[in-house]
Each structure stands twice: as C-alpha cells, then as structure tokens.
Design a protein around this nucleic acid. Structure first.
Length: 569
RNA sequence: GCGCCAGUAGCUCAGCUGGAUAGAGCAACGGACUUCUAAUCCGUGGGUCGGGGGUUCGAAUCCCUCCUGGCGUACCA
C-alpha cells in the first residue's frame, strides 16, 4: 500500500508492537484510528491511540500519550514533531522529505498512480441498471449506471478483476406485452388496424421502437395469417426487444456507461435445463408444491415468506429466472457478485440472499447495494418517475440538457443511500454551479499554464524536452504552506481510492477532487509558475513539477468517474 | 400493519466502524482582474444535527421510543 496508508500501517504496527511488548494484553485495537484531523491546525495526522489504550492499560490517556511520544514517535524519522492534546490525542506533522519522497510515486505511477493490488486474484461481477427493455431509462437508472460504472473502475483500480453486466428481461410477460403493443402499431403502419392492448405501454415509447424497426427492416416481419396481415410472433418480439436494448444502450453509452456483456434472460431457458434444476431443488427439499404452484422455501433462509417459482399455469416466474441466473453466475466462477438495485426493488434483497444461501454461496460473496431514488423537481415541483404514466423526464433528456460530464459527476457526488432531490430547471439555468466545472477548470488552468510556457519559451526551460516521468521530486522546494499542502493532499490519493472501494463509495473520489481543486485554485490565485518581468521569462520549476503532478492526479481521479479532463474551457 | 432507507444551515448534500469549537457548495452580503483563463480567490452572516430518553471520560454517530417523508410488501417484471 502506498501514500498515507504506508505511514498509517507502519505506525499502527509500531504501536501494536509497543503495546504487546509493554503488557501481555491481547487487544486488536480495532478502533485505533490514524487520520487527518478535521482541523488543519492539529497537524498532518492525528491518532487516538492513547485513548484507545487507556482502558486496556488502565492508565491515564495523557500519560500513555507521553510514553508513546517518547518510545514510538520520537524515534521515527518520518515525523517532524509530535504534540499531545487535551483528552489524549497525539498529533504530528510529517517531514517535508517524507512528502517529497512520496511524490515519487506519482511520477513513477503515471496513469496508474493511486492504484493498489488489494483485490489481486479476486474477481467481481457487477450487475447494474438492468432495466426492462420496455421503456425509457429514468433518472434513477442514470444514478445506478454512474454508480455501477464508477465502482467497476474503482474495483479495477484496486486490483480486482472486473466484469460488467446488464441483465435483459426479454423472457416474461412484460416483454410479451411490449411486443404485443409494438405489433399493433407495426400492423397499423402497414394498413391493418387492430386494437391496442388494454393497459399497454405508453404509445410514444412503443412507436419509437416500431419506427426504428420499420426504418431498418420495413415490412420484413409481415406475414399472412388467416388471410390477414400479421407478424411472426417470436421473431418480431426478438427484434423489437433488440431495438429497445440498443436504445437503452445508446443512452447509457452517452454517459460513458458500458458493459462487458448484455445477458438475456431467455438464454437461461435456452441453455440450461430448467426441469433438472427444479428436480434438484425438489430433492433438496427447497421446493414444494402448494395450490398447484411450485414454491421455494425462501422463508427458511432470510425471506419472510416463501416465493412462487412455477405458476399454476406452468410458467416460471421472474424469481425462477433469478435462481437460474444466480446459478449461472456462480458457475461462471466469480468470487464476488455485486448487485446495484434501485430502492424500489429493495424488497428483493431477502429473496436474492435466500437463493444465495440455499445454493451454499458464502454471504460475503454477495454484495447488494441499494441505490436510493432520485426525486425529480421542475421549478420546485415533483415529477413522477413512473414509466406507465406517459410524460416523464427521462435520463436521455437529462444528458441532453446538462451533458455527460455533469451528469456523471452529479450522480457520483452523493452516497448511494441518500435519497436525492434533483431540480432540473436549476441544473439547466445554472449548470455552472455543478462542481464538475470547478474541478475541470483546475485541470484546464494547468493546461493553460503549460501551453503558455510553451509559447513563451522561457530561457531556463524547454518544456518539450521536459519529462515529468523522470523528474526527481526530492529536489522540490515548498515555498509556501499552500504548496506543501497541495503535495500532501496528492500523496493521500491512493488512500482515497482504497477507501472508496472498501466502502463502495465513489463519492469519496468526488470529494477528494473538490478538495484538491480548491487547494490548486488557491495556489493559482496566489503564486505564479511563469514569471515575465521584462527581460526574459522564467519558470519556477518546483511549481511546474507540482502542477504537472496535480494534473496527473486530477486526470486519474476523473477517469475513475469517467469524466473528461478538458484542456481548455 | 410489517420491512428497508432517510430526516444535519434558506436549498442540495458531506460527516455516521463514537472523539477536539458540526463541514462544503448554492443562495445572501462585502472585497480582489495592467500579470499563467475571475467557470477563480479572500472575507461576513447563517445550526435546539426531527423530538425525547439511555449507554460513557466524550454521542450527529451506538441502543430504546415516538414523529415525519420515500419505497416495498403479487402465482408483474
């Protein structure tokens, strides 16, 4: 591990060693923290070690802190000074040399700076969005999409082997119904008037799909049946669903969300022996017959009641597909199965866990994230997200209005379990209040400085021969507290990448970016990299290195969120 | 009814594996462009952390309870 973690782990170990030596106490010190204090005046880092040890050693925290200071901290060459405060905090500052040394990792890490290998050898499959191919994506889907894609990037950065998947419900009655609606509109287009299915999908969406079908295939799906025009049901359904999938895929791609695989529910029935699975589960007494239907004993595990697998009419339920799908996922050999579900599906979690348990899947191999819903406001008024209610504000509309970067960044700003309110009219009229521009602007400013240096060609530096991948950061001089701070924030980046993975929290990246950008903007307003005082321009090389490293960290972090780092704005 | 999630500044949200005077952005107000892009920076005001109990050296954070809001409770997907 790198960056701050290096310091922390080393220090934790030292404290641990010290404790086990001092007393025969076996304490795991699980709540020992070493972190940046909220208030900068308390130093670079702070630990509660003494307070955690107090009850174990039965001593006054201050007393313990004094001893720790003397016997652990003072002999450590990476620390500049140590301070003990009130209840028993130990605050300390890092030596500049240590920070400069740590900066070398940015130089050598290049576009992989921040990455770690903590997930080495572990594969994780992420399933996200998986909206039915029967309508537009709504804003909530955008949130799960952004969350899923960013998380996938973050897992990748932590060394996991990542697989991204979208589950397409092309099999059940909903797909059937959608196809029936489309059939009606398709036939009307070619002159046969049939009744639109009752309680069918909104015509706008269906018409859109049919329009695409006609453009692509014209009347190719028309057949004669009982002397009338009709369509071949299965081929037609297959194609219309395919069109909806590509429509959904387009929207997601436009916000940078992509998949390794679009997995079709129907494959489960084509490729696996459903009857055999049922028989197996029956043998294991996980399935029983009641009222003419087959039930799964989910209540034996975590669910509050049993669920139907096969209906009275012999058709499998959606839950049956879930069983097959999970079996399929397990067979494919992923170590971790990560689901991102919308809060409107949270009732599903227990069912899913129940199957997992029944199939003998260890609990920690199934990670289920419930993304809370997004409430859409327009001029302060709530809009309905229901797909059945016709007019609604779709994800496509949002991306069209605020753009990919702002959409991605916006959805990455909040913790997934916070319900969000999103006022569309606000975002529209003042899109520059979106913090993404603040971060991007920092990057653009750095680019601008470098461009200016190139144009000015100062006599102490040839920018084109200058190689940031080879600089020696130990030569840097911090000429202000701000510059030191900027460097310090950067060396903590790997820690952020690590934590955002452990907590499934892309918003930590966003927060970090904001902080880094703030420090840079302050720097920009107060110090100059390029100086031109009449007789020849000169470059402050220390600062040039610093901003080039800053640029690298911003780029790396933005990349995890799949947001552009623009050269100019 | 039961279950899940939430209630922190006027608004949108961080902080929640307990820690030091509760943080940002937006909005409001006052300053800073002859100098690498002012989409920036500096400063000011703004809070009973939904209410009430409890646990302890210490609670926005843990426990109990109540209130409010969202969502879910199908042989739909």
């Amino acid at each position: 591990m790198k960056g701050k973690l290096l310091v922390i782990n080393e220090l934790k170990q030292k404290i641990q060693d010290y404790v086990s030596e001092l007393a025969e106490v076996k304490s795991d010190l699980g709540n020992l923290t070493i972190e940046e204090p909220k208030n900068r005046k308390f130093g670079d880092l702070s630990t509660n070690a003494a307070m955690v040890l107090a009850p174990v050693l039965k001593k006054n925290p201050i007393e313990i802190a004094e001893k720790l200071k003397e016997e652990v901290f003072s002999g450590w060459n990476q620390i500049k000074d140590v301070d003990i405060v009130k209840p028993g905090f130990i605050n300390f500052n890092l030596k500049d040399e240590f920070i400069k040394e740590a900066l070398k990792e940015i130089v050598s890490g290049k576009e992989k700076f921040g990455f770690n290998r903590s997930g080495r050898g572990v594969s994780v499959q992420l399933e996200y969005v998986s909206s039915n191919p029967t309508g537009n994506l709504h804003i909530g889907h955008g949130r799960w999409g952004a969350l899923g894609d960013s998380l996938a990037n973050i897992y990748d950065a932590n060394g996991y082997k990542v697989f991204r998947e979208y589950y397409v419900n092309d099999y059940g009655t909903q797909a059937e119904k959608f196809s029936d609606c489309a059939r009606c509109i398709y036939l009307r287009h070619f002159g046969r008037d049939t009744d639109y299915p009752e309680d069918g999908y909104p015509k706008e969406v269906v018409s859109l799909a049919v329009e695409r079908l006609v453009n692509k295939y014209n009347d190719r799906f028309i057949i004669e049946k009982d002397g009338e025009k009709d369509v071949g049901k299965e081929p037609f359904k297959k194609e219309i669903i395919k069109i909806m999938v590509s429509y959904i895929s387009e929207t997601l791609t436009s916000m940078g969300v992509e998949y390794d695989q679009w997995f079709y529910e129907s494959w489960l029935y084509e490729n696996s022996n459903f009857q055999k699975v049922i028989a197996d589960l029956k043998n294991k007494d996980m399935i029983y017959r009641k009222d003419g239907a087959l039930w799964f004993r989910t209540s034996r595990y975590v669910d509050d009641k049993d669920r139907v697998v096969v209906r009275k009419d012999g058709n499998p339920t959606y839950f049956a597909s879930d069983i097959l799908y999970l079996i399929n996922k397990i067979e494919r050999g992923y170590d971790i199965l990560l689901y991102i579900l919308g809060a409107d599906h949270h009732g599903y979690v227990d069912r899913l866990r129940a199957i997992g348990k029944a199939l003998g899947l260890a609990e920690d191999r199934m990670v289920i994230i419930i993304g809370q819903l997004v409430k859409i406001l327009k001029s302060g008024q709530a809009l309905k997200m229901s797909r059945r209610k016709g007019k609604l504000y779709t994800l496509r509309d949002l991306i069209g209005e605020v753009g990919k970067d702002a959409t991605r960044y916006f959805f990455s700003m909040n913790s997934f379990d916070t319900p969000m309110d999103f006022d569309v009219s606000l975002a529209k009229q003042k899109s520059n209040q979106n913090p993404v521009y603040y971060v991007q602007y920092a990057h653009a400013r750095i680019e601008s400085i470098i461009k200016k240096i190139r144009e000015t060609s100062p006599d102490n530096l040839d920018i084109d021969k200058y190689n940031i991948d080879k600089v020696d950061t130990s030569e840097i001089e911090f000429k202000s507290e701000n510059e030191r701070q900027l460097a310090k924030i950067m060396i903590f980046y790997p820690d952020v990448v690590y934590n955002s993975c452990k907590n499934n929290a892309p918003h930590l990246i966003t927060q970090y970016l904001y902080r880094l950008a703030t420090e840079f903007h302050y720097f920009y307003n107060n110090f100059r990299v390029l100086n031109d005082n009449g007789d020849g321009a000169t470059v402050d090389v220390d600062r040039l290195i610093l901003i080039m490293l800053t640029r690298r960290v911003i780029r790396n972090a933005l990349k995890l969120l799949n947001v552009e780092a623009p050269e100019k704005m």
